[in-house]
């Protein structure tokens, strides 16, 4: 029943059904994509996740050709005490699966404890939340982080300078740096930039081809579903009500396109999960852009203030003339 709202939504939007095609690989047609228009959102029913990491493997396999391939030595950065080289390219480091890295855009977080007197053990797939008003996009000084009209937040590796500002301003510090690659090597490699930032791009290329993101397709438990945001949010709350559970991601950071539903409160999950570099929290994420956007008032008032000031000045000039006569 809960299997793939995505498929049903895409069907409703005009999907070409092919009975012979396995449900999990049903593509959604170009017309369906055009018809659905708005932002795509995912729902993660974490009760169902068994922590098998099939999604993690699928992500690594699917996106392998997007991964960084540094050549030769890492550039000697200036100043050396301030610019840390982040190199995940060795065989051993590429293999890391317990956190986010430039080669691991999705990982499984473990949460074990007791809630309401009952023990629980949950596994939670973690990756970029695809925020609706993403600070990583808004604050990237080079426009390398971009939000597509279908809600996907993507960092263009050809334009990213690796300064990691996106990571700093992201409430979950999601993007991960690989040094020794990217545009900055062609500019002033030692003095500005430091590699490229990587994160989940929601398999934008598969979506463009009418396919499901690799992690969604690979999951044997149908943990994730994808569809128009409005529908997914509705469904998340219905599910939460049904299981007497909790929702995370709908309002976090002003709203995201990744909604988790859990039988255990997220404050409790946040308490027990391992957090740290490459291991995002599950706490209330506030709203990173809120204060900035309140300041738009200053920009709106500015031209009026300038105009009024100038008019007042004319009035006094005219008065001067009058007095002189």
């Amino acid at each position: 029943m809960s299997s793939n709202i995505s498929r049903r939504s895409f069907l409703r939007a005009g999907l070409i059904t092919a009975g012979s095609v396995a449900a999990s690989t049903v593509p959604f047609s170009k017309t369906a994509r055009a018809a659905s228009g708005g932002e795509l959102c995912t729902l993660l029913d974490i009760r169902k996740c068994i922590g098998c990491e099939a999604c993690v493997e699928a992500c690594r396999w699917e996106n392998a050709d997007k991964f960084p391939e540094p050549e030769g030595e890492m550039p000697a950065m200036v100043p050396v005490d301030r610019v840390k080289v982040a190199d995940w390219s060795s065989e051993e480091k590429r293999d890391v699966r317990y956190r986010l890295t430039p080669y691991n855009w999705l990982y499984i977080q473990y949460a074990q404890g007791e809630y309401n007197g009952k023990p629980y053990s949950l596994t939670i797939p973690r990756r970029c939340m695809h925020c609706q008003n993403a600070p990583c996009v808004n604050l990237c000084p080079f426009g390398a982080a971009d939000k597509k009209s279908n809600g996907i937040v993507r960092i263009h590796s050809g334009l990213c300078m690796g300064g990691a500002k996106c990571k700093q301003v992201c409430p979950w510090h999601i993007p991960e740096r690989q040094s020794g690659v990217g545009l900055h090597l062609d500019l002033v490699p030692q003095y500005a930039g430091n590699g490229v930032m990587y994160k989940c791009d929601r398999c934008y290329d598969r979506i463009a081809e009418g396919e499901l993101p690799a992690c969604i397709e690979a999951c044997p438990e149908n943990v994730q579903t994808i569809g128009p945001r409005e529908e997914i949010v509705k469904r998340a709350f219905a599910l939460a009500e049904e299981i007497d559970g909790f929702v995370y991601g709908d309002t976090q950071n002003g709203g995201t396109n990744t909604i988790y539903v859990s039988p255990v409160p997220f404050e409790e999950l946040n308490r027990v999960i391992e957090k740290g570099p490459g291991q995002p929290h599950l706490a209330d994420a506030g709203n990173a852009m809120e204060k900035t956007n309140n300041m738009i008032a200053a920009l709106a008032i500015a031209p009026i203030a300038g105009l009024l000031g100038a008019l007042a000045r004319f009035k006094s000039l005219a008065q001067d003339k009058e007095d002189r006569r």
Binding site: A298, P303, A305, G306, L311
Partner: peptide, 16 residues
Amino acid sequence: YIAGSLLLAAAVYGGV
């Protein structure tokens, strides 16, 4: 933002 707003106000003043 604040600097930009002041600059905008001053520019409008000068322009007018």
